[in-house]
Nucleic acid binder design. Structure first.
Length: 491
DNA sequence: CGGTTTTGACCCGCGC
DNA sequence: GCGCGGGTCAAAACCG
């Protein structure tokens, strides 16, 4: 409850700041207008005095006009002075509010820090079409349909406040969230398939029950949270996306400072640090997914100490939405998320789609990778309809279960040959939601240059209102659900 | 020449 | 205490 209050305070402050600053701007404009009026009137006065004097009466008239105009002028000056004073006061209020806001933010982060220490959560957020495995329909259409339904029913510009959650199940949305404690990872590795399947069923029921308890949604996600979030909170967000290049172009400037071959994955893990501002603590790790080399796992750690470049803001806002959820949820010691799911879905490589595959087809669970680079939030931007049928970058390769090694090394070979082949382009083009990601090979400068001709697809994905609505709705719904659960349990 | 990448060495935490 | 593995450092190489 405290958490929610603090969050709502933050929002209120945020809004009030906006209003204040807007008012401030208006005031300034008003003052400028007054200045303009004053100037105009001065001109008028100036024009009137040199007028031709034909007789005494006209002289008297003019002098009277002068007197009234002077009075008006002095009145306007007084008004201006008072407005200036008011402006000063308003500025002080804004400054004070800003100070309070940052104080609150700092306090909030300290509280979160303490809670995080107690419980290390891993949250995976998958946005994919679980029902489109055969039809080939992408998640964008599904999301569009779902939101269209709700918009039809409630033509509000904020659909996340009006989602009828009874009509949208998790499977309908193709959207799932899981939260887990990382301490149980090892236990999960030991589980056998049969036990795993039973756990999956239990987990699935739990997840469904959780989603059925969803209520109204707060609009508590701010887009600037990632750029200005408290520096002492080490947010960690992983993004899984199909990308055939060395790294995704997320709009930020990165410098590579290391590379390692991690155990269990022949693909090297690259380490980057943000160089947009000196001393920025943000790091990112980039590694190919062992099961599908076309998937690039980018893990962001830390928060930027500088305003993000325009191109990076959308991505950061999406990640921050997820981070906000993690922060909020982790502050709640009573949160019961993931107690069952964590036993089966402790691997971020096993996303909800794999989960549904396992359920529906009784197929194998993918191997747990202990070298999971993504303790934290996983934003899954892949359409894993063909998880059991990995994509190949080598030309002419066939997708068979025995070609795993060929699949892996075909990517390695292609990496040093040419980044895009016709087959890979065609493969990725099959995905009707996530387009091929922009090449980001050498430096940020080249990216900036190429941004003019190519789309920054990560940004585009994150900027997609449907995508953002879906993320916001999912996170908000869970946040609010949890708060409602607490309310009902308290009553 | 300055910025970036590469790569082996080093540090540190963790498990046995 | 030792070994392993992940993360970082820093010197050399590379590039525009």
């Amino acid at each position: 409850m405290e958490r929610e209050e603090e969050e709502s305070k933050k929002m209120e402050i945020d809004l009030s700041l906006k209003i204040d600053s807007d008012d401030d701007d208006e005031q300034v404009e008003e003052i400028e207008d007054h200045d303009q009026v004053k100037e105009d009137e001065k001109e008028e006065v100036h024009e009137a005095t040199p007028g031709e004097i034909e007789d005494d009466s006209s002289v008297i008239q003019l002098s009277l006009q002068d007197n009234t105009k002077t009075k008006e002028l002095s009145a306007l000056e007084m008004e201006m002075e008072s407005m200036k004073e008011e402006n000063k006061v308003l500025r002080k209020v804004v400054e004070q509010t800003m100070k309070d806001y940052y104080d609150l933010q700092t306090k909030f982060s300290v509280i979160q820090e303490n809670n995080i220490k107690r419980k290390d959560h891993t949250l995976s957020l998958s946005l994919q079409d679980n029902n489109a495995t055969t039809s080939g329909e992408g998640p964008s259409r599904l999301i569009h349909e779902i939101f269209s339904k709700n918009i039809e029913r409630n033509p509000s510009p904020l659909p996340q406040n009006n989602i009828d959650h009874d009509s949208i199940s998790e499977s309908d949305l193709g959207l799932s969230l899981r939260l887990q404690t990382s301490t149980c990872e090892k236990d999960n590795i030991e589980e056998n398939k049969e036990a795993g399947k039973r756990e999956q069923l239990a987990s699935f029921e739990t997840v469904q029950n959780k989603f059925q308890r969803v209520h109204e949604l707060p609009a508590g996600i701010t887009t600037h949270a990632a750029a200005y979030s408290p520096p002492n909170r080490k947010a960690r967000v992983s993004v899984r996306a199909r990308c055939e290049t060395a790294t995704m172009n997320d709009g930020c400037q990165w410098r590579k400072y290391g590379q390692k071959i991690a155990k269990g994955n022949p693909c090297p893990r690259a380490y980057y640090r943000c160089t947009v501002a000196t001393g920025c603590p943000v790091r990112k790790q980039v590694q190919r997914c062992i099961d599908d080399m076309s998937i690039l796992i980018t893990t962001y750690e830390g928060t930027h100490n500088h305003p993000l470049p325009v191109g990076a803001t959308a991505m950061a806002s999406t990640a921050s939405a997820a981070t906000s959820f993690m922060l909020l949820d982790s502050s709640n010691p009573n949160s019961d998320y993931g107690y069952t799911t964590q036993q089966t879905f402790n691997n971020p490589y096993i996303n909800s789609n794999t989960f549904h595959h396992s359920l529906n087809q009784s197929s194998n669970i993918r191997n747990i990778n202990p070298n999971d680079p993504s303790q934290g939030i996983v934003l899954d931007l892949t359409n894993n309809n063909n998880l059991n049928e990995p994509r190949h970058f080598s030309t002419g390769g066939s997708s068979s279960s025995t070609s795993t090694d060929q699949h892996r090394f075909s990517w390695m070979q292609n990496k040093y040959n040419q980044q895009s082949s016709t087959s890979s382009s065609a493969n990725i083009a099959m995905n009707n939601f996530y387009k091929p990601l922009e090449i980001h090979d050498r430096s940020w400068k080249s990216d900036q240059e190429s941004n003019n001709s190519n789309n920054n697809n990560v940004t585009a994905i994150a900027s997609d209102p449907k995508f953002r609505l879906a993320v916001a709705a999912a996170i908000s719904s869970l946040m609010n659900k949890e708060s409602n659960n607490n309310n009902t349990s308290n009553n």
